[in-house]
C-alpha cells in the first residue's frame, strides 16, 4: 500500500484532475470541460484547494464530481484536499478545451458551435452531424438528455444526436 503523502505540486494536482471524468460524458475530464477554475494551496498550508464551477445550477453531476475528485486524490495518496464551488464568473462553453471538443465529437455529441449564448438563435444554428459531418441537420428540441444539451437530427444519415449547447 502506498504511504500517505502530504505534499503535492500544483502541476501534479492538475494531472490528477485530468483523470477525473464527467459522470454523464465519461470521455471528458473535468479539466476538458473547463469546470476546474483554480488549483491552489489553502492559505499557504499543505492543503490543496480545488475550485470548481457548475455548468448549470441544477447540474446533479456536481456532487458526484466532488466525490470523484476526492477519491482520485485519495487513490494517489493525498488526503489533505478541499473542494470549493465558485459561481462567478458563470461557466461558459468557451472554457471547454479544443481537445475536449474533439473528444465530444468522437463520442457522438456535437460540440458547441458558437462563442455566444445559443438561446437567441438555436433554431438557425448549423450544427454538423457528429456521425457523417453533414450540415443538413435540424433542431428537434432545445432541451436534451441533460441540462447542457439540445436534441438534433441529421437529415442525411437520419441519426438523432445530442448537441452541447453554447452557454
Amino acid at each position: 500500500m502506498e504511504t500517505l503523502k502530504n505534499k503535492i505540486s500544483i502541476a501534479e494536482a492538475w494531472s490528477v484532475l485530468q483523470t477525473v471524468k464527467d459522470p454523464e460524458i465519461p470521455v471528458l475530464s473535468i479539466v476538458d470541460l473547463g469546470i476546474v477554475r483554480a488549483v491552489k494551496f489553502e492559505d499557504e498550508s499543505d492543503k490543496i484547494e480545488v475550485v470548481i464551477t457548475p455548468t448549470y445550477s441544477g447540474c446533479p453531476a456536481m456532487d458526484v464530481i466532488s466525490m470523484s475528485i476526492r477519491m482520485e486524490f485519495m487513490n494517489k495518496g493525498y488526503t489533505s484536499i478541499k473542494i470549493s464551488q465558485q459561481l462567478s464568473p458563470p461557466w461558459t462553453t468557451d472554457w471547454m478545451t479544443d481537445e475536449g471538443k474533439q473528444k465530444l465529437k468522437e463520442y457522438g455529441i456535437a460540440p458547441p458551435v458558437n462563442k455566444v449564448l445559443d438561446s437567441q438563435h438555436l433554431q438557425n444554428l448549423c450544427v454538423p452531424c457528429p456521425q457523417c459531418n453533414s450540415y443538413d441537420t435540424h433542431l428537434v428540441s432545445e432541451f436534451g438528455s441533460t441540462a447542457c444539451k439540445a436534441l438534433f437530427q441529421c437529415d442525411d444519415c437520419k441519426e438523432p444526436f445530442d448537441y452541447f449547447k453554447c452557454h
Binding site: 445550477s57 441544477g58 447540474c59 428540441s141 432541451f143
Partner: peptide, 18 residues
Amino acid sequence: EQDIALTNIALDLIGQAR
C-alpha cells in the same frame, strides 16, 4: 421532447433554489 424540456426547466429551478 416536451416532457424532457419541462423536467430540465424544473431541474434548473431547483438548482437555483439550492
